[in-house]
C-alpha cells in the first residue's frame, strides 16, 4: 500500500511553496501541466463547454499563482486546495452565485492550532492515502461519490437517477465516507 511515497504529492507542496516564496515559474509550469487538464476535466464534467472550461481552468491556475502564499501545507494537500478553488470558480461562473467559505480560524471559536498540530505533516500523506482509498472503493460507492462531487447531484437527485430509495443513497454514501475515514485513521 505504499504507493504514496512514489506519488508526487509531497513535491506538489514543494512546488507550490517555490511559487509562493520565489515566484518560481518553472515550478508553476509543473503544477500547471498536472492540474490544468484535471481542472478542465472537472469543469467539462460539471457542464462547461470546451472553451469555457479552458478559460476557467486557466483562470483557476492563475489564481493558484496569485494565492500561492495562502496555501498552508499543514492544512491541505495541493489537490485539495486546487479542488476548492475550482469548485468556487465553477459555482461563480456556472451558477452565478457566491460561494461562502469556511473561516479556518474564526476568532469566535477556539484557536485551532492544537487540532492542527497532529495533522501538520500529514496533509499530503493523507491526500495520497485518500486517493488510493477512493480508487479502491466498491463500484456502487464510487459511483455515488462521483455523482455527488462531479455531477452536482443532490442526494435525492442521485436516488431518483439510480432508482434507489433516498435512505439507501444516504447509507451508501456514509459507508463510503466511513471507509475513507478508516483509511486515514492509522496515520493520525
Amino acid at each position: 500500500m505504499d504507493r504514496t511515497g512514489a506519488e508526487p504529492t509531497t513535491s506538489f507542496a514543494d512546488l507550490l511553496e517555490a511559487v509562493a516564496q520565489r515566484r518560481d515559474k518553472q515550478a508553476f509550469a509543473a503544477l500547471f501541466s498536472h492540474f490544468a487538464p484535471r481542472v478542465k476535466a472537472y469543469l467539462r464534467r460539471m457542464g462547461a463547454d470546451d472553451s469555457l472550461a479552458e478559460e476557467l481552468a486557466q483562470d483557476c491556475l492563475l489564481t493558484v499563482w496569485r494565492r500561492a502564499h495562502l496555501f498552508d501545507r499543514r492544512q491541505a494537500g495541493v489537490s485539495t486546495w486546487i479542488f476548492t478553488i475550482a469548485r468556487n470558480k465553477r459555482v461563480d461562473a456556472l451558477r452565478r452565485e457566491r460561494w461562502p467559505n469556511v473561516d479556518p480560524d474564526d476568532p469566535s471559536s477556539l484557536t485551532d492550532k492544537s487540532a492542527n498540530a497532529d495533522s501538520v505533516i500529514e496533509a499530503a500523506q493523507r491526500e495520497g492515502r485518500l486517493r488510493e482509498a477512493v480508487e479502491t472503493l466498491p463500484q456502487e460507492q464510487a459511483t455515488l461519490l462521483r455523482m455527488a462531487y462531479f455531477d452536482e447531484k443532490s442526494h435525492s437527485a442521485i436516488a431518483a437517477e439510480l432508482e434507489l430509495p433516498l435512505g439507501t443513497v444516504k447509507s451508501r454514501l456514509r459507508l463510503a465516507l466511513g471507509r475513507l475515514k478508516t483509511c486515514l485513521e492509522d496515520i493520525r
Binding site: 490544468a36 479542488f83 482509498a133
Partner: peptide
C-alpha cells in the same frame, strides 16, 4: 476531510487536453 475527498476525486479524473499556448497565456497574465 470532505474537501480532501474532492481533491482525491479530482486526481481520478482523466485529464482533458488544454489548448496550445494555455500555459503561455497564463504566464502572460501574471
Amino acid at each position: 476531510l470532505l474537501e480532501s475527498v474532492g481533491g482525491a476525486m479530482l486526481e481520478t479524473l482523466p485529464p482533458a487536453e488544454m489548448s496550445d499556448g494555455a500555459l503561455d497565456s497564463v504566464l502572460a497574465q501574471m
